[in-house]
Write a protein that binds this DNA or RNA. Structure first.
Lengths: 213, 213
DNA sequence: TTAAAATAAGGGGTTTTCCCCCTTTTTTAA
DNA sequence: TTAAAAAAGGGGGAAAACCCCTTATTTTAA
């Protein structure tokens, strides 16, 4: 039986190469290539011999992140199974990733045996989840609200500016909107995200990866 | 020539094992053992056969972090060379780590060859730094101020409350101080940390681990 | 095609934040 | 022990943030 092929998408090169050497040490699995972000991956996949069985995908990457990339993969290469790899235990991130089509979600602090198991199970049954992730999933599906929060592009833009020590007046200018409209954005977001002031917005943004430190 | 021994201290187990398999693939280097935090490391080091030549140390770990652990190592096992391994490009963190006695500081997005080079150079010359880290070092030593910032307990308390979506009035009550004193805290901190408003304080706090998300 | 959302904006108000500059008391260091 | 520095507090004011409520205009969906 020829080994299953794996591609690693991860911006931290050391981690990327380290995982590669780990995967290569597993029986039945071989790393085809590694790349640093989604864009690089999509370019490489255009060559038919580069199509792997499984992609180990980091969630937080520059240029084209894991969520967006996974969505594209799902549409263009539905046979490839994507396993998300992340340090984030953030509920919404996990849900986004799984909704995008990831077959598994591994936190980066798992044992190497778990990684191997995840690869094997995903090949066999099409999916694999650790208990932690399953629990997070169940919790957030039951009290269905976290997934309901869907921020619009303009709102995200507003939040990012808020995180940049800008006043609302400055934000209004940058976004070519009246200060009063910005007032409205703030008010809706306070309610939507259940925060009391700008600080809460900033915390939310950082927690959910909207604003990178 | 017998290989140099390496110990990996890293809380993300997958990364830990992955780096281990990488280090083992290098000529002249062998992983003695890995552990998840400073406490675990210190316990293991009590066995004389467990003393390595080099420790690859993550900076952000639970229980006993890289900086504290490195300080202890420097005092109790001065012959062991510590190389810091981190995703953080944060100036103050790097400086703290080097002050604690780290012989090198590697960002986690380096090539595996760089890791090998770092190990070799550290054995040979006692230290190794990538250009990025050297630059950060030079910059922050020249405009000597980042290292001068020393926050008092009360100031830290104030910052934490600020991060908790509290108004200054509420903070004053919680800290048993007049709102006017709080006014003073804020003003000194704005100047000290070179920020424009509360948001800047929050960002600083999160970046420097004063406030945990 | 028509009602319901969503988007943009204004009016007008209170509270909070931010920025000076100033005094008293306590702590620290020379 | 005495001068200096730090900590706590105050006055007053301008700007920013926050809150609620209303109105056009555009977009979306039934």
């Amino acid at each position: 039986m020829k080994p299953h092929t794996v591609v690693i998408v991860e911006d931290h090169i050391l981690l990327s190469q380290a995982i590669a050497s780990l995967v290569n040490s597993f029986e039945d699995f071989n790393v085809l290539f590694t790349c640093k972000n989604g864009q690089e991956l999509l370019t490489k996949l255009k060559t038919p011999s580069n199509i792997p069985d499984i992609i180990l995908m980091d969630v937080n990457m520059p240029i084209l992140n894991g969520i967006e990339t996974t969505e594209i993969i799902k549409n263009e290469y539905p046979k490839i199974k994507v396993i998300a790899l992340s340090v984030e235990e953030n509920d919404t991130t996990i849900i986004k990733m799984l909704k995008a089509g990831a077959k598994g979600y591994l936190l980066k602090d798992v044992e190497k045996d778990v990684l191997e198991l995840a690869l094997i199970e995903t090949i066999k049954h099409g999916y694999y989840h650790t208990k932690d992730v399953s629990n997070i999933l169940i919790n957030s599906l039951s009290d269905d609200n976290s997934s309901k929060i869907r921020l619009k592009d303009r709102e995200i833009e507003f939040i990012i500016h808020t995180c940049s020590e800008m006043t609302y007046k400055e934000i209004a200018e940058k976004m070519f909107l009246s200060p009063k409209t910005i007032d409205g954005y703030r008010d809706t977001l306070f309610q939507k995200l259940n925060v009391k002031n700008r600080i809460g917005l900033v915390l939310y943004a950082i927690k959910n990866g909207i604003y990178k430190l």
